[in-house]
Nucleic acid binder design. Structure first.
Length: 654
DNA sequence: CTAGGGTTAG
């Protein structure tokens, strides 16, 4: 522990010997007398210099001011030098050597100058240097001031060193009650929260004599990050004056916790009460729309963005969020439009766009963009590779995927993570190389997670391999015992193989664990963007009779074109007639029939489904797109399917 | 001086 050691601090520059340091502590005896008029002139000059410094926008200009200080005899003026140091920090000038030199030339730094110097190291590191300097400052008898503690605490936050933070906290209490200062208190809260000690942050908050909206917001964010949105909402309700940042914290909190509806509720409410929105708020709302996948909300947020003056934004974060949103709302074209218009692209924008293409089965576009990216300064990261590998996977480009996976480390410096292994298992599995996929899992250098086994299980469903499926499922039942999807998938695979005893064994297992199947549910947008919801087997919609008739008509016409119900899509051991009846009422078929009824001829139909689309529905969608001439876009829980002229963008490969 | 931001696979 370096903090507050009794050892003499050695970080002060070699310009000073120990002896000199002690001499400096003695009060200066013979202060020269300065007449009042000169003093006034000097003050004027100082404030002029400060405004000059404020306007500097390069290191060179700051150096010029520094040289000027010497000429004017102000080279020891802490007031101006503090500003100078702060400007150097602002431009991220490395503390060594120049800012350090500036500081070392000052014989008697005042507490503010000390603090500015300490702050520099708190922002850049090495963080231990901040503490050493603090010791040094105390030894020289200067300060501290409240900023000193905020600077030190910032260093602790950056270093995630809560032990050091506690010591600073103790110092702040023991030296003149600095812990009661609002800024110090807020920084203390932030330090504890960032270090993951939520209860300590809460205690500081509860004990603070004066709190402001910043104190509340820090805590709200911490609860949100810990996943406790209820606690966050309780705090938010008690917050007397809610500003834009506090509202934004709630919007993004819900968005980050996978609760997009509530995120948008807060977004709407903040507009109702007349709080401004800025780009950060928008990013939260945009990300909520992406999760929801409904174009209606996306358009609404876009309108709000335009009204708030952030229409054609250049902010790279906003646009990257937009790319993701448009892709997930079904329009990869819109996503690409905003991507193309970007003046500045970073790894987020590229990766999001690549993932967007991958999600929509546009592997060629994804690969082209990837190669375009390689020509830029932007280096691909792990997410980028997840994107290209899934792109390969969804269209069965096995060799390309294998090659990328094999070379990603040596060529691009990204070492394969579990997620990349999951992509590879998916790629091999979908292509039918189940044995090879299993072998890959066994030779992985890390512990496979649910995604890896899940990919294998999914592939076993496509290729009907109950034996390997059992291996995968048994691992999954251990890793994620309550994930219902795994049980259903395995039981479907058994059903496909006609192993009905095993089916009932799994069903029994599910019952024993108290797991209940999620009902299939689909949404479709009718006229005016109204969203209608359909559950599997649900005939409660007011237009049920018409929907049923429309669906029967459609299926009859499809049968003339050779459609046969795919009875193996029903994983119950019931009669074929019952299977047909069950198939008829799958939620996506109801949504499709309603969509056909309630939208204009020629317009496209957008359906969102909570589960994976079944094979029978998939082929019905294909056929329907052909005989009705409509474009049908289905987003299931995995990916997008664009049905047009009888063909799906996934190439019947999902 | 102190609070809020985007991409990940089954």
């Amino acid at each position: 522990m370096v903090a507050f050691s009794r050892k003499f601090c050695t970080t002060r520059s070699p310009l000073f010997s120990h002896k000199q340091l002690f001499q400096l502590q003695e009060p200066q005896q013979n202060q020269p007398f300065i007449p009042f008029s000169q003093l006034q002139q000097r003050k004027l000059l100082e404030s002029q210099l400060i405004s000059v410094l404020h306007g500097c926008n390069s290191l060179k200009q700051i150096k010029q001011v520094h040289a000027h200080l010497f000429r004017k005899g102000l080279d020891q003026c802490c007031f101006v030098l503090t500003k100078l140091l702060r400007m150097l920090t602002k431009f991220d000038v490395p503390m060594d050597p120049y800012p350090r030199l500036v500081f070392d030339q000052v014989k008697r730094p005042n507490p503010f100058l000390w603090t500015a110097f300490i702050r520099g190291y708190s922002l850049q590191g090495p963080f231990t240097e901040s503490v050493l300097l603090y010791n040094c400052m105390r030894r020289e008898g200067a300060g501290p001031v409240s900023f000193t503690f905020t600077a030190l605490l910032k260093a602790c936050t950056a270093a995630l060193d809560v032990n050091l933070g506690r010591q600073i906290h103790a110092q702040a209490i023991s030296i003149g009650g600095f812990a009661n200062d609002l800024y110090v208190g807020n920084t203390l809260i932030e330090m504890y929260l960032k270090c993951g000690v939520l209860d300590c942050g809460r205690r500081v908050f509860d004990e603070m004599p004066d709190k402001d909206v910043i104190s509340w917001t820090s805590l709200i964010v911490a609860y949100a990050k810990s996943g406790d949105m209820e606690a966050a909402a309780r705090l938010f309700d008690g917050l007397p004056e809610k500003d834009m940042v506090a509202w934004t914290a709630m919007v993004t909190g819900y968005a980050q916790n996978g609760r997009p509806r509530e995120a948008l509720e807060y977004f709407e409410r903040m507009q109702d009460v007349g709080v401004e929105t800025d780009e950060v708020t928008l990013v939260g709302a945009i990300s909520a729309c992406a999760q929801l996948g409904a174009a209606k909300y996306a358009n609404w947020v876009r309108d709000v963005a335009e009204q708030s003056g952030f229409g054609p934004t250049k902010n790279v974060v906003v646009v990257s969020a937009l790319i993701d949103m448009y892709s997930k709302c079904g329009s990869v074209e819109d996503a690409y439009r905003v991507f193309e218009a970007m003046s500045e692209r970073n790894v987020f924008s590229f990766s999001s766009m690549i993932l967007g293409f991958a999600m929509h089965g546009r592997a060629d576009a994804a690969m082209r963009l990837f190669h375009e990216m390689l020509k830029t300064e932007t280096k691909p990261n792990r997410v980028t590779f997840v994107g290209v590998l899934t792109a390969c996977s969804h269209v069965g480009m096995v060799e390309q995927g294998r090659h990328l996976f094999a070379t990603m480390e040596e060529c691009y410096g990204v070492s394969p993570s579990v997620d990349h292994y999951a992509c590879m298992v998916d790629l091999l599995g979908r292509a039918g190389c189940l044995e090879e996929a299993l072998k890959l899992i066994k030779t992985m250098p890390m512990e496979p997670h649910g995604g890896v086994w899940g990919a294998l299980l999914g592939a076993c469903r496509i290729h009907g391999n109950p034996d390997i499926a059992e291996i995968a499922a048994n691992h999954l039942f251990e890793i994620e015992p309550n994930a219902i999807g795994n049980y259903i998938l395995l039981s479907n695979i058994y059903a496909l193989a006609g192993r009905w005893d095993d089916v009932s064994r799994i069903r029994k297992l599910m019952r024993e664990k108290g797991l209940r199947k999620n009902p299939g549910c689909s949404w479709v947008e009718a006229k005016k963007g109204v969203i209608h919801e359909f559950f599997a087997g649900d005939m409660t919609h007011p237009k049920s009779t018409e929907i049923k008739r429309a669906l029967e008509d459609l299926l009859d016409r499809l049968k003339e074109h050779g459609y046969l119900p795919n009875l193996s899509s029903v994983a119950y051991d019931v009669s074929d007639e019952d299977k047909k009846r069950i198939l008829m009422t799958h939620s996506e078929k109801l949504a499709l029939a309603f969509g056909l009824l309630s939208t204009n001829v020629g317009s496209s139909i957008r359906i969102v489904k909570n589960l994976r689309i079944c094979e029978d529905c998939h082929s019905v969608m294909c056929g329907a797109s052909q005989i009705t001439g409509r474009e049908i876009i289905v987003r299931d829980n995995m990916r997008f399917h664009h049905f047009r002229d009888g063909v799906c963008s996934c190439g019947n490969f999902w």
